[in-house]
């Protein structure tokens, strides 16, 4: 050490020494981990899952239960989950991340709109045509919502989850 410590550094040293002075090491016993959420059983995936899902403020519960419904095939759940959080590599998202140039965001189907999830899955002619077929097949009429979350909420309230899953198959 090239120089004496400054007074405020000495202060830290004292504080630190104070913390350390009670520590007695035990030879031949290994250090271990201590999981605060469950000191007795230690870390479990179940415990961590419970902790994370009861934190509450992460996501809207009703959406979670509907999207991750056991009757819905996994790939459908994944797609819907990503849709609702806008995590699909649509052109607007790709441009946002610098994958595409910011001028290259028009819908791949040749309409003059930006390719956003809402556009691609709800507003674009291709998707409105698909939805029309779906309504027809279900034998119902449905006023189209331009926004995915609203659309999802209204649709799942109306239909059972099993029909919902078929629906997205037609789009994929």
């Amino acid at each position: 050490m090239g120089r004496r410590l400054f007074a405020w550094e000495e202060e830290s040293v004292r504080e630190c020494s104070f913390l350390l002075h009670n520590i007695v090491l035990q030879d031949f016993v290994h250090d271990t981990w201590w999981w605060l959420l469950d000191p007795i059983h230690g870390y479990t995936v179940r415990g961590a899952y419970r902790f994370l899902t009861t934190m509450g403020n992460m996501v809207d519960r009703s959406l979670v239960d509907d999207v991750w419904h056991k009757h819905v095939p996994l790939k459908v759940s994944l797609l819907v989950w990503r849709l609702l959080r806008n995590r699909i590599p649509t052109k607007d998202n790709l441009a946002l991340r610098g994958v595409l140039s910011s001028t290259d965001t028009l819908c791949a189907l040749g309409c003059d709109c930006n390719e956003t999830v809402n556009h691609l899955f709800l507003q674009c002619t291709l998707s409105t045509d698909h939805w029309a077929l779906v309504w027809n097949w279900l034998g119902i009429s449905f006023v189209h919502d331009g926004e995915l979350r609203q659309h999802f909420l209204r649709f799942t309230k109306m239909a059972g989850m099993s029909t919902y899953s078929h629906l997205f198959f037609t789009i994929i």
Partner: peptide
């Protein structure tokens, strides 16, 4: 990641011989 540093916040090292901490 996730809920803050939920993992880090909840884990501690228990020092015994101090060799692996």
């Amino acid at each position: 990641e996730g809920v803050g540093n939920w993992f880090e916040e909840n884990i501690r090292r228990v020092v015994r011989d101090g060799r692996d901490t």
